Amino acid sequence: MKKILYTLTCTAVLASTVMADFSRVEMGVGAWTQTPKGNATYTDGGANGLYTSSENKETSPYVWMLIKHPVPVLPNIRLEYVSLEDKGVASGEFKDFDIGAASTTLSYDMKQYDIIPYYNILDNTAWITLDLGLDIKIIDASYTAVPATGFAGYRDSVIFPVPLLYARARVQIPSTDLGLEADIKYITTGDSTVYDARAKVDYTLKFVPVIQPALEVGYRVQKIDIDEDSIDAKLDIDFSGVYAGLMVRF
Score class of each variant (00 low, 15 high):
Met1Tyr: 10
Tyr6Gln: 15
Thr7Glu: 13
Thr7Gly: 11
Leu8Lys: 03
Thr11Val: 13
Val18Glu: 05
Val18Phe: 10
Met19Trp: 03
Asp21Ser: 14
Asp21Gln: 12
Ser23His: 05
Lys37Glu: 11
Lys37Tyr: 07
Gly38Glu: 00
Asn39Ile: 08
Tyr42Thr: 03
Gly46Ala: 08
Asn48Cys: 12
Gly49Asn: 01
Tyr51Ile: 06
Glu55Pro: 10
Pro61Phe: 02
Met65Trp: 00
Ile67Asn: 06
Val71Glu: 14
Val73Thr: 12
Ile77Trp: 01
Arg78Pro: 00
Tyr81Met: 05
Val82Thr: 09
Gly88Tyr: 00
Ile99Arg: 00
Ala101Ser: 15
Ala101Gln: 15
Thr104Met: 00
Leu106His: 00
Tyr108Gln: 11
Tyr108Phe: 15
Leu122Val: 07
Asp123Arg: 09
Thr125Phe: 07
Thr129Ser: 14
Thr129Gln: 06
Leu130Glu: 02
Ile136Met: 11
Ile136Ser: 09
Ala141Trp: 07
Thr144Gln: 11
Thr149Asn: 14
Gly150Gln: 10
Gly153Val: 02
Arg155Ile: 11
Ser157Ile: 14
Phe160Cys: 14
Ala167His: 03
Val171Ile: 14
Ser175Ala: 15
Asp177Met: 12
Asp196His: 01
Arg198Gly: 07
Ala199Ile: 10
Lys200His: 11
Val201Arg: 12
Leu205Pro: 03
Val210Ser: 15
Gln212His: 05
Pro213Gly: 02
Glu216Lys: 07
Gly218Trp: 01
Asp227Cys: 05
Glu228Gly: 03
Ala233Asp: 03
Ala233Ser: 10
Asp236Asn: 10
Ile237Leu: 11
Gly241Thr: 05
Val242Met: 09
Ala244Thr: 08
